[in-house]
Design a protein around this nucleic acid. Structure first.
Lengths: 239, 239
DNA sequence: CGACGCATTGACTCCCGTCAATAAATGTGG
DNA sequence: CCACATTTATTGACGGGAGTCAATGCGTCG
């Protein structure tokens, strides 16, 4: 059940079968989550972390005026709140975009991991640092890229991350999100998101419709996005 | 020399004198850095992490067209690249805004820490998660807040963080940055940054001039910024 | 004193938000 | 299987916040 996580980790370091077994042993139970459900609320004390097994989720913060910023998209193999282990409660909410399956990892087991398995500890620490690296790249998108480039960049990132865990084809992937939510990732209104998507479609770079993204020209899309996957740290070195 | 770091940590957890001594013992050497110097370049393999003792620095990414996004501001007590311990190289650059003093912490000592001191490991892990929390809040600023609110929010954050390490008065603080760099934090041009600053000054909320920020009405500034310091995790709980 | 960096301001443009209408897709109950 | 409600996508018209270009001022420093 933790295959996606292992694929993500093995893209970055060598994980022995013994360590894989320990990782699998961290999971206490599995749970199903219906689409659109908010699974984690800001400020609530946490006693376990959640690993996404299947489906897609997002982190977000709501503003007083009803607008919302989605600060991260989660794909299978991602922890939704591994940072919650040291933060004790979250500063944001987490919501399921689709029906999803998650694994619960009790914090006591993570504490024990920090006491007995320093290498795994560094690997899990790495995962939260990877989250931060993605946040930084999103800051660049939101601060510097145009609507078109920002949108292209998001789809390039997801294509790369989903392919890593076997959820993307070379020319596309499923991305079950509507234009309002997509706009909430990109800091744009749904109206403008719609226009940007039309632009990208007319330029033959991206066809996103009904929750399915088609990438007829991935290289062209990367060029428009100024996409450099270095921030995803897809190189294997000991952690 | 590591007082600022200890103040930051003690705002979030109980640190014994024994642990404080271990933290101090992580430092191998100190170094002086001149203003405007880039101290860390993306992609360069790292063998130690740097703790900021005095002065201010920033993380940034350059775009191909010459524009730049600053993704974080660092104050004394911050690690500049603790995440580099598990990432092995950075996805961004780090630059000194002022003349500064840093402490070098060799990665071997951090590795040893993960093997011998699980509580300190969780504390240091927490620090990188705190960085990520700030990145998320900046995503919210860049994606949803107006130029005025975004600017106000940045000054609220810095006021809080600097006060924590004894570098701010109740009504202001030193912030040695020019309007171009400030704009690079906020995703705006220097011209627009100038207009926003004038606006905030005329509204009696913020007077930023010559590297000094005066906050005649901190509560009003927070209101405009929709500033909620929860994401800074200034509550003491065991990590 | 002149060169330089930085701040300030005006004029103009344009990307993107707002408001609104319509269409298309999806779901729901009878 | 149809009538109806709801959600989502699409498009137009209009306005405003922010970018671009450019000129001016001003303090610092060699």
């Amino acid at each position: 059940m933790v295959e996606a996580l292992l694929r993500a980790l093995r893209a970055r370091d060598v994980i022995g079968d013994d360590e894989a077994a320990i990782i699998a042993g961290l999971v206490a139970e599995f749970a199903e989550v219906p689409a659109k459900r908010t699974v984690l609320k800001r400020g609530v004390p946490l006693s376990h972390s959640m690993l996404l097994i299947d489906g897609m989720m997002c982190r977000y913060k709501d503003m007083r005026d009803g607008s919302r910023q989605i600060s991260a998209i989660h794909v299978p193999g991602d922890f939704l709140d591994l940072h919650g282990f040291t933060l004790k409660h979250l500063d944001h909410d987490v919501m399921a975009l689709t029906a999803a399956k998650v694994a619960h990892v009790p914090h006591e087991r993570l504490t024990r991991m920090t006491e007995e398995y320093p290498h795994l500890t560094r690997l899990f620490w790495f995962l939260t640092n990877l989250d931060a690296a993605m946040h930084r790249e999103w800051e660049v998108s939101l601060g510097q890229r145009s609507g078109v480039a920002r949108t292209a960049h998001l789809f390039c990132e997801l294509h790369t991350r989903l392919a890593l865990v076997g959820r993307a084809a070379p020319d596309g992937f499923e991305f079950p999100i509507n234009q309002t939510e997509l706009g909430e990732c990109l800091g744009m209104t749904s109206v403008h998101t719609n226009r940007v998507l039309r632009d990208l479609r007319e330029r033959g770079l991206l066809d996103f419709r009904k929750g399915v993204a088609k990438l007829p020209d991935p290289e062209g899309l990367k060029r428009v996005a100024e996409f450099d996957p270095a921030y995803l740290y897809l190189d294997s070195r000991p952690r």
